[in-house]
Structures are given as structure tokens and as C-alpha cells.
Design a protein around this nucleic acid. Structure first.
Lengths: 338, 338
DNA sequence: GGTCAGGCTGCACTCGATTGCAGTGAGCGG
DNA sequence: CCGCTCACTGCAATCGAGTGCAGCCTGACC
């Protein structure tokens, strides 16, 4: 015999399958005589009985599965988040199904379709695309959802995001404290919510501190990549050669800066300071080790999973959004201006 | 009405559900009138019909799901492999369920249990533990399996592994060509198959080249971590201060070496060369950029997924194992001895 | 002693798709 | 004109678990 079925357990315990079902389900166990329930459970244990999730799911229309929609698992940003999610999901008896969208709307739609056909009970979405009719539609259809790392504009969807504004604020404060006055910002793409949020935060931070607010000090990158970061820094340096520090939109952009430093013979941090954003792994091994803002990735994932489970349990609760604090990790890429 | 069911499609097309089922399934489509089939398919399309995988799975005992057993998704080694796997699985209509074992046998067993209770049709296993009764048991039970990154000893399980021996051989050849004669090896833990395989390959390589074969030149690390790597290098330097190059068991161990270099004021690569193994992301940003062996991670994953699908389709085919070639990426951490 | 309540248990149907078997009807050959 | 074959379609059972409803039995109360 392969895996034992409920009927096997019932037969072995000398009861009807219905009784066995009730005895095994904690929610309905009260309907069964305590003695009988104990016996059934013991028999089930002995036989190594495992309920067939498909049969159960068929009847209950639940799959104990949630979909994780991320751009690319290969991006070091996501594994810790996924880990955080799964660590919460698992004890709750849920599993996560991961799909990669490569930030391609077409692919994103297809993958979400796939998840829905797999009967996921909810979605954790980490794609960075800004406007998205698909989101609104899912929202209308009542699919429980949580967004991580980006805030839905207009839509009433719960989200977990790092407190970008506070982070940028800390970075600027750190540089200002070191004595920098002309600080540049290499902003992320304007099509991403984090890109615009950080850029706005930067503008506010320099204004509040009476630092140089020249718009030429803010350059927007085309993508969140080293190449874009390098290109942006070149433009910045061409426009304002007197800049002494830059706040990069994220670590990859900061890495692009390193390339420009060696290309133009700039000594970091003596001649120019850089602050990254995200605290990717191994940044402490760079030369110089990158000062950056650490995001509690795992915690973000865990929080998102908890919120999704809540949303699944109580579909019509108000969307609640959470900003998680981040911390500035000071390493070797920042120093007082020459 | 929520998602339409097969019955809805059948009603709308004016046929019996059985006929609709046959028309929609490519394998049985030949049994129904071509015209009818076309009509049913059109109606299904129009209604946006998606078969319920649970109902189907219940009847067919298939889940279109495979389990991916990895130690820790957070380890940069695995995301590319997972990506490669999913890229193959997806077009085949399969999905992967990821579990993290943290290399803890207890957890591993529990997680595999979980996967089985979720009715996965096969397993891709990437855990690094050597002896494992669980593998043998699964094997006996006829669970289709493929291992990646390690070879099962004794068991007849297909595996996909990088050609460790050839890689180490290339590393040693590279260093020897540069003029190194006293080369050390910081081996991975003896409890892992890759650890022992690479160590053996190293011994052979230095022997074949008439280099220094002193056993003191080979030090075994406790774990695949920076700390262990640093500790191992310290021991090596204490025993043989005249060593001019080291081949690290993997990149993390090599990173540990960097710590010792700065700790003892050793100039890499002028005074000592290092070669890593794996080509983790961003190694090119280190100071100096790490010379290492690049593993075709994504390709490994893709190949593993293909083999698993084969094994699921034809359960009793002979286990076939594949060694994938790797390539030496020469960067700045290797140079002729002083 | 009779009646009623309530605790347990069993029956039977349901979820949605698949599939062996039976049945219908058309077409063709004798 | 009859009978047989073959192509197609419908019926009904099945997968494993969950659940409304009915019925049994016991115990308590009048």
C-alpha cells in the first residue's frame, strides 16, 4: 500500500471515515468523543497518515500556498526576503511558490496567471514597477495581497517598506556631520517608487540642512545597475566637478561609482565619499568597504508574510502599511572632505 | 460566478463534461470529433477556463510540482541554480517548491517530509551532507531524484556536478605557470563531498607537477565560511610561512584569507596569491579582484531540471550523471611570486 | 415508566476532473 | 434490406477528504 488514506485510518480504528476526519481536524475534534478521537489519532500516527492536500484543497478550496512575485531571485536583495517569508509561512502550514518576472510586465502577468491557476490563496508582490493595472484588478477581485519594498499609489493594498526617507536622511546627516557641503545624489529610475521616494527625501534633507541644493547635483539613473550608476556619476562630475560626496540610489549604483573612481583616478574616500543603499552581502570586502544603509530584509519578509496570513484569515480588514526602520552602516567609503 | 469549471465549459458548448475534458486534453483530443473539439476549446478560451490542478491532481495523482531541497537560499551559490531550474520547469508546466534545510539533518528530514506530503513528483537535492540514510530510503521508495553539486556515493542517483577535479587542476596549473612552487590548499570540510573531492584533486595536481607535496600545505576548514577560512590560513602560515599561493576550497574561504592579509599586513597578490572557487557575484569588486573558478550555475540547474523531468517520465531509466566544465576567471589576486 | 434532550456517529453527497465502459448513430458491405 | 463496424459521445464511478443531516443511544427529568 502506498500512503495510507483517511479510509485506511478509519478502518483500522474501527470508525467511519467521517468520524476519523472529524477526529483528526482540531476544529471539529470537539464533535467526537474524546476517547474515540484519541484512538483515531493514535492509529493515524501509527500508520503515518498524511492528509492528501489535493483532496482537502479540492473540497475546501484552499491550497495552503501563497505566491511570491519577485523580479529576479538572482538579485541578492531578494533571497533574504524570501527566507524571511518562508520562515513565517512554514510554521503556519503554508508554502510559498516563487515566480520571477524579470520586471517584464508581460511576464509578470503570465506568472501571476500561473499562480492563480495554482490556486494560491494570496500574493506577496515585490516587483518594482510603478503603475500597474493588474494590481488594481487583483485588488478588485479580492485576492489577498501584500507588497514589499514598494508602496502602491492610490490602491488600498498593505505594504511593507523600508523607511527610505529616514534612511536618506541619515545618510545626508552622516555626510554633513563629516563636513560635506556639496553632496550629489544618483537617483534610481523615475519609474520606480523607491527611486522617486529617495530622490524626494534627498532634496528635503539637503534643503533642511542648508546644503547646496543645486538641481545639477541630482542625476537620475536609467536602471538600478552599475553601468547606469557609472554613467550618472560621470554626468554629475562633468556638471559639478566640485562635489565631495554622493548618496547612491542603491548599492549597485554605488558600485558603478567605484568603476568611475578607478577610471578617473579619484581616491575614495579621501577625495570623494559614497554612501550606498541596501547593504548587499560582501560590501565589507570592497576597497574601500562601502558605507551603506542596511535594510532588515529578513524582517521585511517575515512581516509581509504575517500580514498576508492575516489578510487571508480576515479578508476585509483595512489595509495597514508598515515602514521598517533601517540603519546606517558606516564603513570606509565615507570620510571628511579633503 | 468565480472561476469557470469544466462543467460550465461543457454546458456552454452543449456537450458532456467528459467530452469537454477529452477535447481540452491534447493527449485524448483525437477521441473527439475535430469540429466539436474546436468548439469546446473556443468556448473554454472565451470563458477563461483554467483546469483546477487540485481536482486533476486528485484523480491523476500528479501535482506538476517538484521539490527543491537547498541548504540556504541566502547563500549566493543557490539562486542562480534555482533560476536555471525554474526556467526549465516552467515551460514544462511544472513548478518548484523550495525548502531550506540549513544543512541540519533534522530539518532536512522534516522538510522532505513536508514536500512529500505536498505530493511532489520528484526532488532536486542540493544539500552538501555526505552520508545520508534518507537518500537511500527515498531511492528505495522510487522517488525520482536528481542531486546537484554533489555526487551520491554508492547510491544510484543521477547527479549534476561541476568538474571539481578539472577546476582545481586549472587553478594549480595557473599558479604553477606563474612560477609558484609552494602552493597551499584550504580544503572544505571533510564531511562534504566537494570538500574531499577538491582536496584529492589538489593533491593529485601538485604531485603531477612535481610541486611541493608537504601535507602541511593542506589545511582543512571546519566550515565553508570566512571565519573558518581565516583560521585555516593562519594555521597554514604558522606551519609553512614560505607558502606563496593558496587555492581556497571556495570563495568564502578565500574571503577569509583577505581578512588575514590585512591582519598580518600581507600584500596580495605581490606576496601571496589566492584562487577562489565558485565565482560568487561581485568578486570583481574586491581589492584585489578575486581570481576564481566560475561554475555554470544556471546551466547546472537547467540540466538538473531536465534530468528530473526525464526521470519522472521514465522512472526506471539508468541513473546518468553529468560533470559540467568550469572556467578559470583570472583577476587580480594572482601574480608571480615575489 | 415515559419523554425529551443532547452527545456521537454514520450516511451520503460534494468538490472538479478523469476514464473505463456502454450506447448511439452513421456508413458500408453483403 | 440487414447487420456489422467504427467513430464519437454520454454515463457513472473514482480520486480523498469534508460536512449537513438524520438517527441512534444514553441519561436525566417529570
Amino acid at each position: 500500500m502506498q500512503t495510507p488514506t483517511l479510509r485506511d485510518v478509519a478502518d483500522a480504528a474501527g470508525v467511519h471515515p467521517a468520524t476519523a476526519s472529524r477526529a483528526l481536524n482540531p476544529a471539529t475534534r470537539g464533535l467526537v468523543n474524546a476517547e474515540t478521537a484519541r484512538r483515531v489519532m493514535k492509529v493515524a500516527e501509527g500508520l503515518g497518515y498524511r492528509p492528501n492536500p489535493m483532496a482537502r484543497g479540492l473540497k475546501t478550496a484552499k491550497s495552503a500556498t501563497v505566491g511570491l512575485v519577485i523580479p529576479d531571485l538572482t538579485n541578492p536583495l531578494f533571497p533574504p526576503i524570501v527566507r524571511g517569508i518562508e520562515d513565517v509561512l512554514e510554521p503556519a502550514g503554508y508554502s510559498g511558490l516563487i515566480v520571477n518576472t524579470d520586471n517584464d510586465p508581460q511576464r509578470e502577468q503570465a506568472q501571476i496567471e500561473l499562480l492563480r491557476s495554482r490556486q494560491v490563496e494570496g500574493l506577496i508582490v515585490a516587483t518594482a514597477l510603478l503603475d500597474h493595472p493588474l494590481m488594481a484588478q487583483l485588488q478588485r477581485e479580492g485576492v489577498p495581497m501584500v507588497m514589499v519594498n514598494r508602496r502602491p499609489d492610490g490602491l488600498d493594498i498593505p505594504s511593507i517598506t523600508p523607511d527610505d526617507a529616514a534612511g536618506i536622511e541619515m545618510a545626508v546627516a552622516h555626510l554633513a556631520d563629516l563636513g560635506h557641503r556639496r553632496i550629489g545624489h544618483l537617483a534610481g529610475p523615475a519609474s520606480t517608487s523607491t527611486g522617486v521616494a529617495r530622490r524626494r527625501a534627498f532634496r528635503n534633507a539637503v534643503r533642511d540642512r542648508d546644503l547646496d541644493v543645486d538641481p545639477a547635483l541630482v542625476v537620475t539613473c536609467e536602471h538600478w545597475t552599475e553601468e547606469s550608476g557609472a554613467a550618472a556619476l560621470r554626468r554629475l562630475l562633468d556638471a559639478r566637478p566640485d562635489v565631495t560626496a554622493v548618496v547612491a540610489g542603491n548599492d549597485l549604483i554605488a558600485l558603478g561609482c567605484y568603476d568611475v573612481f578607478s577610471e578617473r583616478g579619484i581616491d575614495c574616500p579621501r577625495e570623494m565619499s559614497v554612501v550606498g543603499f541596501n547593504d548587499m552581502p560582501f560590501l565589507d570586502k570592497l576597497a574601500p568597504p562601502l558605507t551603506t544603509l542596511a535594510i532588515p530584509h529578513q524582517q521585511i519578509g517575515a512581516e509581509a508574510a504575517r500580514m498576508l496570513l492575516d489578510a487571508i484569515a480576515e479578508p476585509d480588514r483595512a489595509a495597514r502599511s508598515v515602514l521598517l526602520p533601517l540603519s546606517l552602516v558606516v564603513r570606509g567609503s565615507t570620510a571628511p572632505p579633503a
